[in-house]
Amino acid sequence: MEGASYQRFPKVKIRELRDDYAKFELHDTDVSMANALRRVMIAEVPTIAIDLVEIEVNSSVLNDEFIAHRLGLIPLTSERAMSMRFSRDCDACDGDGQCEFCSVEFHLRAKCHSDQTLDVSSKDLYSSDHTVVPVDFSDSAAAAGEALDTKGIIIVKLRRGQELRLRAIARKGIGKDHAKWSPAATVTFMYEPSIHINEDLMETLTLEEKTSWVESSPTKVFELDPVTHQVLVVDPEAYTYDDEVIKKAEAMGKAGLVDITAKEDSFIFTVESTGAIKASQLILNAIDILKQKLDAVRLSDDTVEADDQFGELGAHMRGG
């Protein structure tokens, strides 16, 4: 049953890494793998989000459904999500999804007593589990040098006398079910471009032609050296595969001035997290999920058996 292996050995190189952002190179693999990872990061890595809201009092200007929806969209810290159960296959609570293995309870009580409007924010949500709390962005804001006294994510504003009291249940879920469970803000990848200028042909251009050719690129990929008047590739990754410089070269009668190809097996990934999971963890979780998915699509033993019988029958029919 053992055939030759056609396995690949991918390589990675990290460029930038912050809690909510990662940029890395992925080499020696193919687009299908890059795209599968991207798709899994967006839609299949689990997080925790508010899924059920019981409103006790709501005299705010927003209706109950509107507030419930806004609560659902608040990112919650979800390091626990990978080891948590989905409430639909939790047998500890018979599927009502309110036990400690598959849910986290939140309470919110707010009433405005003053003439100033009261901002009700994600900071007013009290969690039953200290590991699952609304994402706090003040640390990353401080790191970026912004002097913000962050008040969390605003849910509703209350006027004098208005009140909001509710109980919310947060559950584990995936982005495929509802986008509120997606841990990724954006995940993108691009082919790594390889750009080669035909230097001989370039030298046939006048300075003016060079300038106008360099400026024909919508993004700053090329630069004209002010001293040597040489055209240099300063940022190949700024190239958006727009073909503008190629068209420009053709229009100037200098086809083949530049050769731009995409390296088929090298990708540059950018991953932005919502804050529910660290970007680095998000990538690792995506690999685990993809492995689980592959495991699930393996053939079961009874399919193999059924085919063996069929195979014998087939051999008989073929006169074997």
């Binding site: 049953m1 055939g3 292996s5 056609y6 396995q7 690949r8 050995f9 991918p10 390589k11 990675v12 190189k13 990290i14 890494l17 890395f24 693999t29 793998m33 680095s280 990538i283 690792l284 690999i287 685990d288 993809l290 492995k291 592959l294 495991d295 699509v297 393996r298 053939l299 193999v304 085919d307």
Partner: peptide
């Protein structure tokens, strides 16, 4: 069937390599 199983095994091993590489790089 053999090709299908082989493809899944190879992908699984590729992901193992990728995970190992990433953990080290991080």
């Amino acid at each position: 069937m053999q090709a299908y199983n082989q493809a899944i095994n190879d992908l699984d091993k590729e992901l193992d390599v990728l995970k190992y590489e990433l953990e080290g790089a991080f």
